[in-house]
Design a protein around this nucleic acid. Structure first.
Ligand SMILES: [Mn+2]
Ligand SMILES: [Mn+2]
Ligand SMILES: [Zn+2]
Ligand SMILES: [Zn+2]
Lengths: 147, 147
DNA sequence: TTTCTTTTGCAACTATGTTGCTTTTTTATA
DNA sequence: TATAAAAAAGCAACATAGTTGCAAAAGAAA
């Protein structure tokens, strides 16, 4: 990786942590780096594998929980019951996620993507039901795998 | 329970198993009964608690897996990463689920419902992506809890 | 009833997630 | 930059969830 790029990413990471009044620690930096170097979402298992050699499992759990609490990442429910995490857009903040986008799981490459431009549709519910949150997960074949 | 009703339910259970060429065993009968006596979906934990005193944990896992494979029940992904199971409509069959309905999780009573009449919407995906399955899970307050 | 097939229970194991407590690191401030 | 207070990390121990192989039991077929 060119030196310039890694400086930029390091700054971005430090800023992100400061903005959320989190202290800057090795594990937080490392895990954020994984997200920033990546297009799609990461399963907990991936993160543990890729950060866990250097950090304790418990630290990975606590770091991800902190990030979710602060609105830095959000979770994506999937059919196979393995939580995925993805970076939030900047509008998210502590206790206030704004993730009204659709998620896509590719059944070929198994990657998960946030389709930030695809807004979750209005769902007309039966009388008596009221909605707080709508989660849409589409399974199919992604851009790369369709070629 | 009136004797008549339980005869009916027993017959229904036996028929369901026969139709799917599954042998009729105590655990399968018991677990199907749980589903038939119930409006909403059941979490694995619930089933284990309510059937597990009589049956081994492993049997519960295997029975549910068999039911999913045969298209007797379907799974519902939820945000809290605890798989829920619900009975399929009759159109489902082995290797061929037809569950194009929306699921609803009540954040008050924590029940999960299949909204069989609410069809999953068409999602317009970005160029290159193709959909095979769309999962919609709405979180909110249910009919009962809204009163 | 007997035989063959399927399912169950058990034991042992892996994976996933949590908690309390001590040590280490980070931050704030003198 | 040294020091003290606060926060986070690591460790151990535990709890829960899910899987696998195999022998015993139950079900289906004849
Ligand atoms: Mn997302
Ligand atoms: Mn359903
Ligand atoms: Zn793909
Ligand atoms: Zn409710």
């Amino acid at each position: 990786m060119p030196k310039q790029a890694s400086i930029t990413i390091d700054k971005r990471i430090a800023e992100l942590l400061k903005r959320n009044s989190l202290s800057i620690t090795d594990s937080r930096k490392k895990i954020l780096q994984l997200f920033l170097e990546q297009t799609g979402a990461l399963a907990h298992g991936d993160i543990e594998k890729r950060a866990g050699e250097k950090f304790d499992r418990v630290t990975v759990y606590r770091t991800l929980q902190t990030f979710v609490d602060k609105g830095i990442v959000h979770t994506i429910p999937t059919a196979d019951n393995s939580i995925r995490y993805a970076l939030c857009k900047d509008e998210c903040s502590e206790g206030h996620h704004h993730d009204h986008h659709v998620h896509f799981v590719c059944s070929t490459c198994n990657n998960t993507y946030c389709l930030d431009d695809v807004v979750t549709p209005e769902i007309k519910l039966p009388k008596g039901y009221s909605a707080e949150q709508v989660e849409v997960v589409v399974e199919g074949t992604c851009k790369n795998c369709n070629r």
